[in-house]
Amino acid sequence: MGKTHRVLVASLAVLGSVASSCGSDAKDTAATTAATSTPAATATAASNTASATTVPTMTGTITVFAASSLTEAFTEMGAAFEKANPGAKVIFSFGGSGDLVTQIGQGAPADVFASADDSNMTKLVEAGNASGTPTVVAKNSLEIITEAGNPKGIATLADLATPDLVVVLCATTAPCGKLAALVLKTAGVTVVPKSLEDKVKGVVTKVTMGEADAGIVFATDVQAAGSKATGVAIPAEQNAVTNYSLVVTKQATNTTTASAFIASVASPAGQAILAKYGFLAP
């Protein structure tokens, strides 16, 4: 009995050490590389507060958790940032904003969070997982997405209520779903969707693959789909906009580079990239 007990304790101890060493995965190698430069840089910056000439070196890897509607724009943004800061590397994890908030809450290794709406950003901030205040970098509005060439001749939101039309929307946990519900309510249209996708790209995929006739997505998603989809504009009086904001997370290991990335998105060059992909200025 005593022997078994000791063995059990020993095995749990081993498990504990395994677990803790497993926790330091790829992300920590990034943290180590960052640690060699960043704290030093911050320390110098702190000691030389008087001389404003100190330029913090943007090095190391940062991980950006971004709303999936930012996929195309941020991929280009990341490449531009890496080009401007040769020592830096940006890794993206794109997903539904709500999903990303949950992951960060569970300790996912994110340095920057980019939300597609205010409510998910608020959720992150209220949970104490943000450091500093979020920066709004862009706005986006909704559009109806149809198959290339709009074969069903959809012209208005009201057309989406046609009984045999296969319509797919975002779930209300995703910003696109929350906004679509608002827009449909404003227009007084009741749509019976066939599916409630967990993220906006799910709607895009189902429409571009021809499984769904139409969906409601961000204007930028229609543009990103290129020739595979056709957008139908929603009149301004029915439409709604959402704010895209960025913040450095609480658990960020490379805050200098993370802040620099956010600054680059807000800079004129960054705004030009966002505009190119159809985002509206904040």
Binding site: V168, A171, P193, K194, S195, L196, E197, D198, G202, K206
Partner: peptide, 8 residues
Amino acid sequence: ITFAGNFP
């Protein structure tokens, strides 16, 4: 979720 979608 990919093939059948998600609807309650």
